[in-house]
């Protein structure tokens, strides 16, 4: 028993045990507080995870949408390219039509120079003699040699004196004063890589240059068509297939040229050969230089040129062009249809 009036003194052991009890209480409180914070953090993280999962799900939807857009990109590129080609060809055709006025002016300037010389009475008299000679030329053989020689000598003299007229009439076209302009030739090889089966060109000129050539004047568009066909012919000869079939078709009112190689595999790079010929054309064709017109070539995916359905654009290997059936193309006046194989010379329509 402890004394009543004396200060209570706890034994050291009890004090130690009480210390342990306080420490335990403090530790427990601290641990419970940490557990509470951990739990809060866990709940917060779970909430964050739920939010992130929702965001991931949203990203998944977005990914599908973007992937679909990516899948659709070739189709959109195809559509936009076709639209650009159609718009560009029409715009280039307008440029060509504008330049045709300059071409006509350049031709007229040369004709006027000739007319000015012909207005000289002395020249006019020589021309009259020149024309009279042309009329009697077929009968010269019937004349005695002396007369014939005299007439021929006089005609030589007339020709020499008319030489200045001839030189003016056949002088290069003088460049007109105008800003330079440019038009584009659309070109395409199918397939784009490897040995080509076909070549297609779209010119910024009306198709009726082919179909109704007998009704048209030879304007700048016609000259450009002839030039490009000549350049194509030269390129085909260069790659060893000069005789390959060439067809002319209507591409939305514009002239398209199609070359089918068939069994005649080109022995060279068709694109390189054609580019070289077109470059020479652009540099040397007097008609283009006179009107300040440059010619560019745009090499495009064959599907753009063939105007395939959009569904076909998804195919990575490209759909093959196929020549028309064996019914020959209807030929315009003065032409036989240029068709491959055992086709007919022309339609009977």
């Amino acid at each position: 028993m402890m004394p009543e009036d004396s200060e209570q003194i706890l034994p050291r052991l009890v004090q130690a045990l009480e210390g342990v009890s306080r420490w335990r209480q403090e530790q427990e409180e601290a641990a419970r507080a940490r557990l509470a914070r951990i739990n809060d953090e866990r709940q917060r993280l779970r909430a964050d995870i739920e939010q992130l999962e929702r965001e991931i799900e949203t990203l998944g939807d977005l990914e599908l949408k973007v992937q679909a857009e990516l899948d659709e990109l070739p189709r959109h590129v195809h559509q936009r390219t076709r639209a650009a080609v159609d718009e560009g060809i029409n715009a280039d055709a307008e440029v060509l039509a504008e330049r045709d006025g300059l071409y006509a002016a350049a031709l007229k300037a040369r004709e006027d120079a000739v007319a000015e010389l012909l207005a000289d009475p002395d020249i006019a008299r020589l021309v009259e003699e020149y024309e009279q000679f042309q009329q009697v030329e077929p009968t010269l053989a019937n004349l005695p040699a002396g007369y014939r020689d005299a007439i021929l000598a006089h005609h030589d003299s007339v020709q020499r004196r008319l030489q200045p007229v001839l030189e003016v009439a056949q002088a290069p076209l003088q460049p007109v004063d105008a800003e330079r302009a440019a038009v584009t030739l659309v070109a395409s090889l199918n397939p784009m890589e490897g040995s080509p089966e076909a070549l297609a060109l779209i010119l910024p000129v009306p198709f009726d240059i082919y179909e109704d050539w007998t009704e048209r004047n030879e304007d700048l568009a016609a000259v450009l068509s002839y030039r490009i066909i000549a350049a194509t012919s030269a390129a085909l000869a260069q790659v060893g297939v000069p005789d390959v079939a060439m067809q002319y078709t209507d591409y939305q009112g514009k002239l398209a040229v199609q070359v089918w190689f068939g069994d005649d595999a080109p022995q060279g790079d068709v694109r390189e050969a054609l580019d070289a010929q077109l470059e020479a054309l652009a540099d040397q064709a007097g008609e283009l230089r006179a009107v300040g017109l440059d010619l560019y070539t745009a090499w495009l995916d064959p599907r753009v040129v063939t105007g395939e359905d959009d569904d076909d654009v998804q195919a990575s290997d490209g759909a093959a062009w196929t020549p028309g059936d064996d019914e020959a193309t209807e030929a315009p006046a003065g032409a036989s249809a240029d068709v491959p194989g055992d086709a007919h010379i022309e339609s009977e329509a």
Binding site: S225, Y226, I229, A230, A234, M246, A331, A335
Partner: peptide, 20 residues
Amino acid sequence: IHPFELARIIGLEGSVRPEL
């Protein structure tokens, strides 16, 4: 003949004429 046929023949000449 059709002018395009003639143009093709002219192309076989191998050089570009200054004027057609």
